[in-house]
Design a binder for these strands. Structure first.
Length: 470
RNA sequence: UCCCCGGUAGCUCAGCUGGCAGAGCGGGUGACUGUUAAUCACUAGGUCGGCGGUUCAAUCCCGUCCCGGGGAGCCA
């Protein structure tokens, strides 16, 4: 059975037509209407690409009967022909024979106007912003970038794995977690059971505390030590009260994990993945990237091209500290071995000193997580961060500690009980192998790809402290 | 969570030393034109973020709360 939309031609296809077409059916939203005596111009966008297609509605046609309702924001279905445009600015245009208005948009109350809006305003109408040029382009790029991530891993022998979103592990350790519970507000279960103060979650759904995952790393390690090379690409949740343009409570993270791999392999993977995704997006989303280059960040294309063509800089933490100490710049926070690099230090390295992405590796163990492999110097761990201009930390990863005794000692050093990590320790107990992996923030990658400076504007419906609309 | 800046028409903003609320864009009406964020004329549109205080009088000064931006911390 045919639907009324069976023959609909996406605008991107219509614009790329090789020749005129006697009949064509397009659907989309009216971006603007310009009326002339005897006919009107409509700019139609259907999201398939950045460009609009121009439709001509002549006074004599049946289509003209509905022209008053075809206001900015209205959705329309147009049957007509595709003809060469006599006007400047476009090759093809649609001469409308029939037009129906599928959904009207009251001109006085429709929030999107034929003008530029601020990102802050568009964020308050996140349900409508996909209909703007900028956010249409952004979400097309987001889709392409996600695809390119899967593509890169597939081409390089990685298996995609799905790590759990609900976790009972109290040792993910990457930050504050969101609790998930089916208990009533008074602490009783749906069946009316009341847990004891000692065991609050005894009668909760899982019989123990449950949280949303803050990382798929531990699970990915398990899969890697069986499948060899794996990656996860899923949502991640942090209940941190972070109020910055680079943090969200819900974000998407790419976490590869490789068995039989060292920090060096890890750094090569991080660089290869980043470069490959950027390259593909530049190739496949040229018009959308152009928009950002024109209106958001005029250095964008130049910087992305450099990123694709030049190797990332690499510097050990120790060298980085020396660079920072000797650069002659005065920082708010002085640098010395053992202190964490502050945002101002990271920005100096990526934006000024190297002026391109830089991988900092071999951090002091005192400022990094217990699962990172201890180096022979006994003071640093095989960790690495990829710092990129304007974004800061895009990737954080490490070679994992694969020696049972060392791992156990590190856990105790931090005052924790190794027993809680029993299944994680088992990986080191049975057929342990050197392995490595990292986490890449997908939204931060998109910020880098588009020049957009606020993470809230690269994810359709951002979740940040105090913000759960839509 | 801390520091700084801001909140005035649908949007972007101006508003002097406390004294009757402004512009551009958008909307409406009309004109005109193969137009490209069309153009021209006319026109409507306001709880000056909320609450409290000072004052004869508050958009303006003070307190407080809410929201937004920038910076910091936490990190991806």
């Amino acid at each position: 059975m045919n639907s009324p939309f069976t023959n609909r031609i996406p605008v991107c296809q219509a614009l790329a037509a090789q020749g005129p077409m006697d009949t064509i059916h397009i659907c989309g939203w009216v971006r603007t209407r310009r009326d002339s005596k005897g006919f009107s111009f409509l700019e139609i966008n259907d999201g398939s690409c950045l460009a609009n297609i121009q439709a001509i509605v002549d006074e004599g046609t049946p289509a003209y009967a509905n022209i008053e309702k075809a206001t900015t924001g209205a959705s329309v279905s147009i049957h007509g022909s595709l003809t060469a445009s006599p006007g400047k600015g476009q090759k093809w245009e649609v001469r409308a024979a029939e037009m129906s208005v599928l959904g009207e948009a009251d001109a006085e109350t429709f929030p999107l106007q034929k003008k530029r809006h601020s990102d802050e305003f568009l964020r308050t109408i996140a349900h409508l912003r996909p209909r703007t040029n900028k956010y249409g382009a952004l979400f097309r790029i987001r889709s392409e970038a996600a695809f390119a991530v899967h593509e890169y891993f597939r081409e390089n022998g990685f298996f995609g794995v799905h790590s759990p979103i609900l976790t009972g592990s109290d040792c993910e350790g990457a930050g504050e977690m969101f609790r998930v519970t089916t208990l009533n507000q008074d602490g009783t279960s749906k069946e009316g059971h009341k847990s004891s103060p000692q065991e609050l979650f005894q009668h909760d759904f899982f019989g123990k505390e449950c949280n949303l995952t803050v990382s798929g790393q531990l699970e990915a390690e398990n899969l890697a030590l069986g499948l060899g090379k794996v990656y996860t690409f899923g949502p991640t949740f942090r209940a941190e009260n972070s109020n910055t343009p680079r943090h969200a409570a819900e974000f998407w993270m790419i976490e590869p994990e490789m068995a039989f791999a060292t920090l060096e392999d890890n750094m090569q993977l991080a660089e290869g993945l980043t470069r490959s995704v950027v390259k593909r997006v530049l190739e496949r989303c040229a018009p959308d990237i152009d928009l950002f280059n024109k209106f958001v960040d005029t250095d964008l294309e130049k910087r992305l091209t450099t990123l694709v063509n030049e190797p990332f800089a690499r510097v050990s933490y120790t060298e980085a500290v020396k660079i920072l100490q000797q650069c002659g710049k005065t920082f708010e926070f002085p640098v010395s071995f053992g202190t964490d690099l502050q945002t101002e230090h990271e920005r100096f390295l990526a934006e000024e000193h190297f002026a391109k992405p830089v991988i900092v590796y071999d951090y002091p163990k005192t400022i990094k997580a217990f699962y990172m492999r201890l180096n022979d110097d006994n003071t640093t761990v095989a960790a690495m961060d990829v710092l990129v201009p304007r974004i800061g930390e895009l990737i954080g990863g490490s070679q994992r500690e694969d020696r049972l005794d060392v791992l156990e000692a590190r856990i105790r050093e931090l005052g924790q009980d190794p027993a809680h990590y029993w299944w994680y320790m088992d990986l080191r107990r049975f057929g342990s192998v050197p392995h490595a992996g990292f986490g890449m923030g997908f939204e931060r990658l998109l910020m880098m790809l588009t020049g957009v400076t606020n993470i809230r504007d690269v994810i359709p419906f951002p979740r940040t402290p105090g913000n759960l609309e839509f």
